[in-house]
């Protein structure tokens, strides 16, 4: 059983404008089981992106440790896939080449890796744009590519950093529904960073509310799946949960 464990994770850095050390993340301890979908929600500046960057290995922790499957995390690695807010697709690679890039690094032959890439593009209905370049795609389509590029590498954990924050509201709802569908089909372990309370509750099994670098509260979400906005928008349980989380976030 692969688990992600954060133990007293902290991050302080020197802020040249404030002229002082700032604590972005303070002694955060969290355990994510295999196949879990955890949302981390909080206002901007609460340290949620810093937290994700440490788990991804983009920045070193100042204290504490990150263990994936009992092993300490050190730097970025393919067992932790990342989906970025800015999509971060390679503009010089076609959609297919972007998705096939992880498998290519793993040393798979062209036929094998393109087969995998096409399967994943099929999953989000983008098989027909495989030969296009990212800049020819809409924002929503680009982020679908971003999601399956990370999935195609078969990571132990998928780290998503406000991935739907830069697409329009309609597209965002569609993407959220697609993500819950993919999660139900494949059960990847997901840590999803967002400032959107509704999104956090809609997607996750567990919502972690972050405030001033600390975990304020963890809330289990037992809403039935499959989840769809048509069903949940007026759902009493969903509204109650969202209200509870919203209150926590606003009190922060």
């Amino acid at each position: 059983m692969k688990r992600l464990v954060l133990k007293d994770l902290s991050k302080t850095y020197f802020d040249p404008y404030a002229g002082a050390h700032v604590t972005a993340v303070q002694e955060v301890s969290l355990e994510v089981k295999q196949g879990e979908f955890v949302s981390v929600v909080g206002p901007s500046g609460c340290g949620k992106t810093t937290l994700l960057n440490m788990i991804a290995g983009f920045i070193p922790a100042s204290g504490g440790e990150i263990l994936l499957d009992e092993r300490a995390v050190d730097g970025p690695g393919p067992e932790r896939g990342v989906v970025f807010q800015s999509f971060a697709l390679f503009p010089w690679k076609t959609v297919l080449e972007n998705v096939a890039f992880g498998p290519k690094i793993r040393g798979l032959s062209r036929t094998e890796r393109e087969k995998i890439a096409r399967e994943y593009l099929d999953l989000v209905g983008l098989a027909n744009v495989a030969e296009r370049y990212p800049n020819e795609l809409s924002g929503g389509m680009q982020q679908r590519v971003g999601v399956v590029r990370a999935l195609a590498n078969n990571p132990d954990v998928l780290l998503m950093d406000e991935p739907f924050a830069s697409v329009d509201a309609q597209t965002r709802m569609t993407l959220q529904e697609e993500l819950t569908r993919i999660w139900q089909e494949r059960r990847p372990t997901i840590i999803f960073i967002t400032h959107d309370v509704g999104e956090a509750v809609f997607l996750a099994n567990r919502v972690v509310v972050l405030s001033k670098g600390r975990i304020l509260k963890e809330i289990e979400v037992t809403l039935p799946r499959p989840r769809a906005w048509d069903l949940l928008t007026e759902d009493a349980a969903f509204k109650a949960l969202s209200g509870q989380v919203l209150q926590l976030v606003r009190s922060a």
């Binding site: 970025f84 590029r149 590498n153």
Partner: peptide, 18 residues
């Protein structure tokens, strides 16, 4: 080159040469 692009490649497992 935007930093996320380098991050993306690193978290897909890219070596220094790649």
């Amino acid at each position: 080159i935007p930093l996320p692009l380098r991050h993306a490649a690193a978290s897909l497992g890219a070596s220094k040469w790649t």
